[in-house]
Each structure stands twice: as structure tokens, then as C-alpha cells.
């Protein structure tokens, strides 16, 4: 699934475009930055409530496919400037982290009830 498709399916608001053709490989949900540095993997979509500029550095270093800011949280203008420079997509939603992660999980995993 591409970044563009996820924007469509989750009805995300695009704050910084980046590359909509980029393939998303899984997802990581965390508000602790060192946790993301330690445990996210290349291509992950990152769901978080953090909005300050350090999130762009984290996403760029780990090669994440995009950042989803949840709960309609206002995003620091400096974050958007840095994200545009690094071509990291920044997307926003009114949904909570739990809700957006749950919907995305169902989209990519198609889990079966045991």
C-alpha cells in the first residue's frame, strides 16, 4: 500500500506531501522518540501525538514512510518546514492513535478471528 492510498482510505489530511507513491511497510505507534529509533523499521508509517521538529529527524533517520499526527493536534510550523525539506510526509487525523492504528491494521493485515 502506498502513502497516497493510505491518505485516501484513512481520510488523512496532508500537511506535507512527500512522495505519495512510496510503499508503506508496516506501522509503528509510539510517542517515545527513542523507542521509535530503537524499534521502528524502514518503511513503517509512524502514528504519534508528538509534533515538534525532532520527529522529522527520527523519521528521516529510520527511513519511515510517513508520520500520522492523531487527535487533530496542532503541528509546530518548524516541523512542517523540516519535513518538507526532508520529503517526509506529515499527515493529520481527528482520529485517536488507537483508532487510526486499528483501521490501518485491518487494512494491511486482514487478521482472522481465531
Amino acid at each position: 500500500m502506498t502513502v497516497g492510498e493510505v491518505i485516501d482510505k484513512l481520510k488523512l489530511e496532508t500537511k506535507v506531501t512527500g512522495n505519495p507513491e512510496r510503499t508503506i511497510k508496516g506501522c509503528y505507534v509510539s510517542d517515545m522518540l527513542s523507542d521509535v529509533l530503537a524499534n521502528s523499521t524502514e518503511g513503517n508509517l509512524w502514528i504519534t501525538r508528538q509534533t515538534h521538529p525532532n520527529i522529522v529527524a527520527v523519521a528521516a533517520i529510520k527511513g519511515l514512510s510517513g508520520i500520522v499526527i492523531t487527535g487533530n493536534k496542532p503541528i509546530d510550523p518548524e516541523t512542517l518546514i523540516k519535513a518538507a525539506a526532508e520529503e517526509v510526509p506529515v499527515l493529520s487525523t481527528f482520529l485517536s492513535s488507537f483508532e487510526v492504528a486499528g483501521i490501518f491494521y485491518n487494512l494491511i493485515k486482514k487478521p482472522e478471528v481465531a
Binding site: 524502514e42 533517520i61 529510520k62
Partner: peptide, 30 residues
């Protein structure tokens, strides 16, 4: 904290130009 990551950013570019594998670059940058 605003400019945090400047050093690792430059380093990533230098290492990529040297042909260092992406996974090694990520370890260095982290």
C-alpha cells in the same frame, strides 16, 4: 532541540556517498 539531527543528517549524506549500506548508515545516524 530545534536543530538536533544536523550532525547525523550530514553524516548520512557522507556515508551514502561512500556507498555504505543503508542499514549501517541507520545505525550510525541513530
Amino acid at each position: 532541540f530545534m536543530d538536533a539531527g544536523a550532525a547525523s543528517k550530514e553524516m548520512r549524506t557522507v556515508l551514502a556517498n561512500l556507498g555504505v549500506p543503508p542499514e549501517t548508515i541507520r545505525r550510525a545516524a541513530v
